[in-house]
Design a protein around this nucleic acid. Structure first.
Lengths: 153, 153
DNA sequence: CAGCTCTTTAGAATCATTATAAACTAAACA
DNA sequence: TGTTTAGTTTATAATGATTCTAAAGAGCTG
């Protein structure tokens, strides 16, 4: 299959880049999302690094501005992040904050929240013993179990 | 000590009422908060029932309107709820929502969140097996461990 | 009662998020 | 390849929870 890459590569290794972009195109098509220029650029920023990370929409705005030679409207960032969340490519982190936090680490895991520094830290599943929920609510099943560990000095 | 109750009792048993109000006056004074008419009325709504409950500021507005023969400004509700949270009389529930949820149950416990009905349900500590956090962050200590169990049909 | 500080208040301001509706574009089809 | 269709992007407006402001009110101490 021939892929029509919807934007030009400004710098870097085109071949490698092409492979990555094709991967995202497949991913998006497979989940019924059209691989637009904006979505591919957002994929690159969110999923193009080895390390996973936490971010708010505001953080993403800054990352896009820094990494991409193009502006993406705020509405598109919201739409895309929400679409990715719905498809399971991102997770929303349950924490009280004026902004919503998302996580590119979609594995089952938990979080530390450093109250002083207002910083989230991953807590892998292996770092938390098994959690046994004894109570049952009839007609309902458990979709997820999320642990937030607040830290102080 | 003589207490000057800063508002009149509209209906009900005055004697019993007086005892409750005095209890709240002590509570507030002991934590450095002046026992104002508004704070006592809010105490009544939040702590005057046997059962604990979850609420948003918006819920509280409705409860106040229904139960108290007096209007309390929105700013005061925010101020008071935040003051009570700071003193440990209320807990903020870590959940993603456009509104902040508070809990009058300040015991160590967790929550179910019914995604379909958008409803919080208490999960007492005894309903959850012990949680063992194996990872340590140096210089930091654990302040709280909160579990959110999401439910689906 | 006087003086002081804390509290309440209405209304304005802020800020994240969502809605709108017009322009745009990927995909399907002729 | 051009046309059609449905999904997307965009600037901008609207919404809504929360916070700010500063002036008036009310506990508290002496």
């Amino acid at each position: 299959m021939i892929y029509n890459i919807p934007f030009t590569v400004v710098k870097g290794n085109f071949r490698l880049y092409y492979i990555f972009v094709v991967k995202y195109i497949e991913k998006l098509r497979n989940s019924g999302l059209r691989p637009t220029k904006q979505r591919l650029q957002i994929c690159e920023v969110l999923f193009g690094t080895r390390k996973t990370f936490h971010f708010t929409i505001n953080d993403l705005v800054k990352k896009i501005k820094k990494q991409i030679n193009n502006n993406i409207s705020l509405a598109t960032l919201y739409n895309t992040v929400h679409a990715f969340e719905k498809k399971g490519y991102l997770k929303r982190i349950p924490i009280n904050s004026n902004q919503t936090y998302f996580d590119t680490n979609i594995s089952e895991h938990h979080h530390f929240y450093d109250l002083k520094e207002e910083r989230l830290i991953d807590l892998e599943n292996a770092d938390v013993g098994p959690i046994n929920i004894k109570k049952k609510i009839n007609g309902k099943k458990i979709k997820s179990v999320e642990v937030l560990v607040k830290l102080e000095d």
